[in-house]
Design a protein around this nucleic acid. Structure first.
Lengths: 157, 157
DNA sequence: AATGAAATGGTGTGTAA
DNA sequence: TTACACACCATTTCATT
């Protein structure tokens, strides 16, 4: 995990289809050296997968919301986690500090789809309380966070 | 945007490096037909870009936090938005309903890096109040949200 | 809008340094 | 760990349906 690896991750985060030749030109390495580094970055788990950034609006998911969840006292937390992980509308769900147990980021076609989602959580007895916050617009969105060009941590992974 | 397009998006979301041949086999189309569909999906903006899913822990970003922001009365909202969009630690930032103005998802190397971030927001006079929630663990994470295999909206984009 | 064939160019492997 | 060369395969274009 040196500065060249981070540059490669940055280039691929911008365009995962960049050719080994182009990446090599950007980091002063031959295509095969770049390939070997990408192989190692993938094997070591730094790169989890090559994926897409899509426009969910066009796909019919007009609503983005954050649902704060307080788990019921008698809820099976492991069951809740696997339910939430396999729910198609859930983009993210994190166990968090503070007054709430979990924060789930969900995408729905319409506002009306949120209530059935909450109802299901309640029916399964996961939910004690919840609070839903709707995202009106997005000011920033980045799939990969990297250190600013100069500084940053080294020798990990 | 038919069911085949959605299947292609789903396959690419899982593995953006899947070959046209393999995708074609999965959706019963020739490689060149798949290629043309991907070109159209990209041109129409459904696919915004090909990117990576990375492990930020290994990259040295051990802390994931949600920062709730109430903008100061005299804050220049446009300025705030471009500041937050260009800040390297900010993974997402949404304008939200409810008691707060914005919700920012940030990644930091350590907990100690959060305070300087808040200080900078304050120094720039964007911040009235804020509340920071730390993510302890992640139960779900998906880059792309698609309708469940059967149903879903059609004829968009 | 899809197919199939042909050309291009990128990927991946082997060998050597 | 990288470079270089070569074999292979994927991508892309084009003519056709």
């Amino acid at each position: 995990m040196d500065i060249t690896d981070r540059k490669i991750v940055g280039i691929l985060a911008d365009d995962a289809r960049a050719s080994l030749t182009d990446i090599g030109a950007a980091v002063d390495l031959s295509p095969s050296a770049v390939n070997e580094r990408i192989r190692r970055l993938t094997a070591s788990g730094v790169i989890r997968r090559f994926t897409l950034d899509v426009d969910h609006r066009i796909l019919g998911f007009d609503v983005l919301a954050f649902v704060w969840i307080a788990l019921a006292n008698d809820a099976d937390e492991g069951e809740f986690r696997s339910f939430i992980a396999s729910h198609p509308a859930v983009a993210e769900c994190h166990h968090v500090t503070g007054a709430w147990s979990y924060c789930a980021k969900v995408r729905m076609p319409t506002l009306g789809d949120i209530e059935p989602f909450l109802s299901e959580l309640k029916a399964r007895r996961y939910l004690a309380r919840s609070e839903t916050v709707i995202a009106l617009s997005t000011a920033a969105e980045r799939s990969v966070t990297l250190p600013a060009p100069d500084g940053g941590k080294r020798d990990r992974g």
